[in-house]
Write a protein that binds this DNA or RNA. Structure first.
Length: 256
DNA sequence: ATGGCTCCCCTTGGGAGA
């Protein structure tokens, strides 16, 4: 089973790219982030025509997450527990093919320090609490999406330029580290422990052409899935398409 | 160090992204 994550940066503006990528790579399950569309403007029919069921949690202009699947989807929750007043659509969770799939769009947090960074760290804490609960259920779980964190210096083209940034500050890296240490496996790093792998390239300064990227889209696997992970990768070429997102699709393959 | 680009919207400029 192939599971992918893709921050599309506008699901309607990106629809031709999304449909082409779905047709070419045929993932079984897809987590989307940054829909930038309210619920009623999600392109449901085009997704159905492409052969996917879908659930989504939209929001006007910003954020928004969705899960697509070739098989039936049972929605488990939208939004993380612990913040009933949080209006951002950044988390949706479902049961698909006997796996719990959590699709997340962690806040960017810039400028840091400041209220946006505080919100990022608070969101991270809520994610960690929920993630610990998922692990306690002792069932297969995939937590994937745009974490807006470069976990280590290997994940940044020029680490010294990013030390003050919300995506790379010590507090952010520490939050990711303690999350993983609950018992999760960073799928890409498990298969490629020392390779330079990026999932995002800025639109500016020909970042893609210079390979000046960041690894910020991640797959965390619960222990029940460790022996089923047999491949993972980044569809880097998609970043070179016309009218493309600034993120690349990232995927894993699990044995049945 | 700065600005570069691209998305969105009660749009024609501003906010946000990372």
């Amino acid at each position: 089973m192939k599971i992918a994550t893709y921050n599309v940066n506008g699901v309607n503006g990106r629809l031709p790219v999304l449909l082409r990528w779905l047709a070419e790579t045929q993932p079984d399950v897809v987590c989307l982030q940054e829909l930038k569309a309210p619920d009623e403007k999600f392109p449901e029919q085009a997704i159905l025509d492409a052969g996917y069921h879908a659930i989504w949690h939209g929001q006007k202009s910003w954020n928004g997450v969705a899960i697509l699947s070739r098989t039936e989807i049972k929605e488990l929750r939208r939004g993380l527990p612990g913040a009933p007043d949080d209006s951002h659509s950044r988390y949706i969770e479902a049961f698909v093919n006997n796996i719990v799939i959590g699709c997340l769009y962690l806040p960017n947090g810039n400028p840091a320090p400041g209220p946006k960074f505080d919100y990022k760290l608070a969101w991270f804490e809520r994610l960690k609490l929920h993630a610990a609960g998922l692990l306690a259920n002792d069932i297969p779980v995939v937590l994937t999406g745009d974490y807006n964190v470069m976990p280590t210096e290997l994940d940044v083209y020029k680490p010294e330029r990013w030390v003050e940034d919300a995506l790379f500050r010590p507090e952010t890296r520490q939050a990711f580290k303690t999350l993983v240490e609950q018992g999760w496996t960073d799928a890409i790093r498990k298969l490629y422990p020392t390779e330079k792998i990026y999932t995002f390239y800025d639109y500016f300064r020909n970042a893609y052409g210079r390979d000046a990227g960041l690894r910020i889209d991640h797959f965390l696997l619960s222990p029940q899935l460790n022996n089923r992970l047999h491949a993972a990768g980044v569809d880097r070429n998609v970043r070179g398409w016309e009218k493309t997102s600034d993120h690349c699709p990232v995927w894993i393959e699990l044995t049945p």
